[in-house]
């Protein structure tokens, strides 16, 4: 199938997954991921070009509900578990960091 063996980069993948790995952990995670990919990579060798993928039962029979407007979650309830709110919205730190005042 002409696939070249590619290597995972724990550092790059952790950036994609938004999980900050401390530098000391990167080689450890790198080695764990390589070993897991070695194991799951056994299926790479199979010739499955003619096989249709199967993504699960729900794709085959997805029941639809009536297209009718329904009440959604209460705002206060929805905000109750958030770490920071102003009572109406979720609050988050600034996108570009704290501004100098």
């Amino acid at each position: 199938m002409g696939r070249s063996k590619k290597k995972i980069s724990a550092e790059h993948t952790s950036r994609l997954a938004r999980i900050e790995l401390p530098p000391s952990q990167i080689p450890v995670v790198q080695s764990e991921l390589e070993s897991l990919l070695d194991f799951v990579g056994r299926i790479e060798q199979l010739d499955l070009d003619s096989v249709e993928p199967f993504f699960g039962i729900a794709i085959d029979a997805n029941p639809m509900r009536t297209d009718r407007q329904e009440t959604s979650c209460d705002r206060t309830d929805t905000l109750r578990n958030a770490p920071q709110t102003d009572g109406e919205s979720f609050l988050v730190p600034p996108v570009f960091g704290k501004q100098e005042s």
Binding site: V51, P53, F54
Partner: peptide
Amino acid sequence: QYYLQASKVRR
């Protein structure tokens, strides 16, 4: 390489 291939094995 991974997800699609695994979904074919699933089939």
